[in-house]
Design a protein around this nucleic acid. Structure first.
Length: 485
DNA sequence: AACACTTGCAACCGCTACTCA
DNA sequence: TTGAGTAGCGGTTGCAAGTGT
């Protein structure tokens, strides 16, 4: 239907809108494609018409806007425009620190329920919150992209060879999608049907903000092979994520839950989780038990607003990954599709209780801060990053990793402080740097890896030597350029 | 200055839920 | 009960502005 001039005049007079503004507003409508309705950005004239309409008829009946005002917009578009931009009580501008924290908390609780979240934020729309979250997620994925585990790196160029060998091998490993490397099985690129097990993620971890790095969709991770060893310990879930979320919604709202209890409960058997993550249990014990949230809140920089970053260096990494990179601990940190994945799982012995524990808030700060990429930080060099993210410059990292005890012992018997004093990169994380710390961390990095090029001469054995315990993250500086993308 | 790339936001699309005749 | 109309939600995309080279 195409509005005639008379038609517009008649209808606009009925609503009390200047017909010329309607004509102006409709100037760019999509007539060429046969639709009388306009798409794309709204102009002021259109906004004015819509506001007049709402003033007269109130919210609702959006489909009649076009009919009554001649505005060449569909009702859906009008509703959206009103709800997201024209509503008088809308709050514009950046999210406050408190709002951001609350979003993260709520997302951990209810997942991508943007509308429900928006209900808790007067003046904010679901779209705002969604955009905020997605932006944050994007940064996270970018960060992860530069933190492919060594296993994936190796796997990429050894895959052909491995596949050939597997084809002829009488290996006990009956799963052709898993490459055995020093008891760490790395899924091949063909292993696309991975469904992460929620069972392995204790709610406590979700609580303390693990959701941040768990946010990355499984698809992206399995594409990167990040599930690696974790996969081998996982019990595949047969419940599709899109189904799970509805159940979670119900049980979250129906139960007065207390996740902190479950968190403690889980701490008693951290090995399950660490095993699946590829951590040593000692690391995790420190991580889960010795973490004292009260101190993190006082760390300079952690509470800095996004506009006033106090931590020098690159803060793009989600907090937990920052921890890992900061001293290259051996970790094959799996991410699962999102915190939702955990949330969405059917209630089980852990997930039956799920409010944010007291521990959560300060790590949330860290995650939140990791989510904020101060523009200024982009100017900082990688070297600065490596230095500044160290535990001395950022006490919260020390706190989180080792609790309040700087003399906590690493698996190889070194104190944390000694490790850091020994490992104080003076230049960007070179392999020498990795090497200097690797033995202390209970893992080894083969020097050959530095100049590693895939050759036919690299047999399995030498490859296996690359991993003494688990996968290890390479910082981008370690990454051969032809493997970077 | 020009270009490429990144980022954040606005808006659209497809789907589901709800209402009502 | 059913089907049309409408509202709402979440995912995705397109684009303008910002930033880096």
């Amino acid at each position: 239907m195409c509005m005639t001039t008379e038609c517009v005049d008649r209808m606009t007079s009925e609503v009390g809108i200047d017909s010329t503004s309607v004509k102006e507003a409709n100037a760019g409508r999509n007539i060429r494609e046969g639709s009388p309705l306009k798409k794309g950005p709204w102009i002021k004239a259109e906004d004015a018409i819509l506001m007049d309409y709402v003033a007269k008829y109130g919210e609702g009946n959006w489909s009649s806007v076009h009919r009554r005002t001649g505005l060449a917009r569909c009702g859906k578009s009008c509703r959206l425009r009103w709800a997201n931009h024209l509503k008088p009580d809308l709050k514009k501008g950046a999210f406050t620190q408190e709002e951001e924290e609350l979003i993260i908390e709520m997302h951990a609780k209810i997942g991508n329920k943007w509308a429900r979240m928006a209900a808790e934020f007067p003046g904010r729309t679901d779209n705002d919150i969604k955009n905020f979250w997605n932006t944050r997620l994007k940064r996270q994925r970018r960060a992860e992209k530069h933190m492919l585990p060594l296993g994936v790196f190796f796997q990429e160029f050894s895959e052909d060879k491995q596949n050939k060998e597997l084809a002829t091998s009488s290996s006990a490993n009956s799963d052709p999608h898993l490459l055995p490397i020093n008891n760490v099985e790395i899924p091949t690129a063909e292993n696309r049907n991975f469904e992460p097990s929620q069972q392995l993620y204790p709610p406590g971890l979700l609580n303390i903000g693990f959701s941040s790095f768990l946010d990355t969709p499984a698809t992206s991770l399995r594409d990167q092979g990040l599930n690696s060893s974790w996969n081998t310990h996982s019990v595949r879930s047969t419940v599709h994520s899109s189904k799970r979320i509805r159940g979670s919604e119900a049980w979250f709202s129906d139960q007065n839950v207390d996740l902190s209890q479950a968190h403690h409960q889980y701490q008693n058997d951290g090995s399950l989780f660490t095993q699946s993550l590829g951590f040593s249990s000692l690391y995790t014990r420190n991580l889960t038990s010795n973490y004292h949230p009260s101190s993190a809140g006082d760390i300079p920089g952690i509470h800095a607003s996004s506009s006033e970053p106090k931590l020098k260096g690159k803060l793009e990494l989600p907090s937990f990954q920052t921890l890992m990179t900061s001293w290259d601990s051996p970790s094959s940190v799996p991410s699962i599709e999102s915190s939702n994945t955990f949330i969405q799982s059917p209630p089980n012995e852990y997930t039956n209780s799920c409010s944010l524990s007291p521990q959560s808030s300060d790590l949330l700060h860290a995650i939140l801060y990791g989510s904020q990429t101060p523009k200024a930080s982009r100017n900082n060099s990688h070297q600065e990053t490596s230095r500044d993210v160290g535990p001395d410059s950022c006490p919260v990292l020390r706190e989180i990793q080792w609790g309040t005890n700087p003399d906590a012992i690493t698996p190889s018997g070194h104190t944390i402080t000694s490790v850091f004093s020994e490992y104080t990169p003076s230049s960007g994380g070179s392999l020498e740097d990795h090497q200097s710390i690797a033995p202390l961390m209970g893992c080894s990095v083969n020097q050959e890896m530095a100049n590693f090029t895939p050759t036919a001469g690299n047999d399995d054995t030498s490859n296996h030597d690359l991993f003494s315990e688990t996968d290890m993250y390479f910082s981008p500086t370690d990454w051969p350029h032809d493997k970077m993308e």
